[in-house]
Amino acid sequence: MNEQRRQILQMLAEGKITADEAERLLTAVETEEPETAPAVRGKRPKFLRLIVDANDEHSGETKVNIRVPLKLLRAGMRLAVFVPPQALERANEELVKQGVPIDLTEIKPNQLEDLVDALDDLTLDVDQTDTKVRIFCE
């Protein structure tokens, strides 16, 4: 029996509330419980998984199974903050040359952390005749 129920029954026993009020309060407590339960039970994913299963004529069957802890991604992102601006400018130039006009200096550390947090819900499935790629968090 949880604390709230015990308090309600105690108030009823002491005559502070009527039986109808106790029933309403107990119903209210019961309706609250299912909402809070999944949040407690729901585990946050710990790993990012990449599974590739391909069958190519030249290289034959290829299987790749990579598991990266999300903590490692977060730690890497935090370390990326220390990349000197000169290096970022060079990287920007190379990206522009490759046709990817992204300004890396505009990406802030908190945005990167949000990006890793958002990976929790990521599921990517590519299913072709000879290639299957699956990226997800577990």
Partner: peptide, 18 residues
């Protein structure tokens, strides 16, 4: 930061078969 990276390594697994 490097220490955090080192601490976060357990659980990593890379498997390639070709």
């Amino acid at each position: 930061g490097v220490g955090r990276l080192f601490w976060a390594l357990p659980g990593a697994r890379i498997e390639v078969e070709q």
